[in-house]
């Protein structure tokens, strides 16, 4: 009964329309013990768009990404200040269920990390623990839809019972994307999803990201400025823990306001 209620909550969440802020961060400041990693970051992430976070290593972009589904909670020494609103609700506020939050805001990691289980089990795990499928048929259906959306179905449909870890790197990463979308999240966070992949696999993932934009809001951290330019509509540039500049991708890459942004995209700092 509780599970059905939760499902309805998941389904009846108001669909954020384009141009409205799906996620809004206000004054987010993060410390790892005494070391400040992010300082006063405020930005809006619009629904059904791809937002790219760029910047040199250690600039805090991954930290910011991990604030959005509270993955930083798992690091004991990490302290987050400020507020992050998802659909107007502060996710760091009291009474927020982290487990439910992470089901709404999925995540794809830098290194493909499928479970050491079968391909089917990898995708079915999320729906199963959240009770999204009433029976085996519905579960099969979710697995197939998720794998189709991740563009992996045709490659694995005959070997769903084989180990997910036996796939190639690019396939593993698409499996992780399928696993993330199987629980019908609203936002998908991607932490350098292509950094461990070859150019062809990268191109496939990029295509996929563009398709997924229709249904999900996507935030992607990337080291590759070309990738940011190719897949995103909005771009935010971080440097030394500070959000330097944000704006439409085209504007950031062609006509940045800040000099530091200019220097970074032309390769002078980084």
């Amino acid at each position: 009964m509780a599970l059905t209620a939760r499902r309805q909550v998941l389904e009846t969440e108001p669909l954020a329309t384009a141009k409205t802020a799906k996620v809004a961060a206000h004054g987010v400041t993060v410390f790892y013990a005494d070391k400040q990693a992010l300082e006063d970051v405020s930005m809006d992430i619009r629904g059904h768009e791809v937002t790219a976070l760029i910047g040199p290593s250690g600039c805090g972009k991954s930290t910011f990404l991990r604030c959005m589904n509270r993955m930083n909670d798992t690091i004991a020494i990490c302290r987050v200040e400020g507020e992050i609103l998802v659909d107007g609700v502060d996710i760091y506020g009291p009474g927020v269920d982290v487990v439910h939050l992470r089901a709404r805001i999925g995540m794809v990691f830098q290194k493909p990390n499928p479970f050491p289980k079968s391909i089917f089990e990898n995708v079915a795990y999320g729906p199963r623990i959240h009770g999204l499928a009433e029976n085996k048929v519905a579960l099969d259906d979710i697995v197939e839809t998720s794998l189709r959306r991740a563009g992996l179905w045709d490659e694995v449909k005959d070997r769903l019972n084989e180990a997910g870890t036996g796939l190639s790197g690019g396939q593993q990463q698409r499996l992780c994307i399928a696993r993330a979308i199987a629980v019908s999240p609203e936002v998908i966070l991607m932490d350098e999803p292509c950094s461990a992949l070859d150019p062809i696999a990268t191109a496939r993932i990029e295509e996929l990201i563009d398709e997924l934009r229709e249904k999900y809001t996507i935030v992607i951290v990337t080291h590759s400025m070309q990738q940011a330019a190719r897949v995103s509509q909005r771009t935010a540039f971080f440097h030394l823990g500070v959000l330097v500049e944000q704006g439409d991708t085209e504007q950031i890459f062609t006509n940045p306001v800040e000099k530091r942004t200019q220097d970074y995209i032309t390769g002078r700092i980084g």
Partner: peptide, 9 residues
Amino acid sequence: EAALGIGAS
């Protein structure tokens, strides 16, 4: 991370 990331407790 993978398990927590899809909302496992």
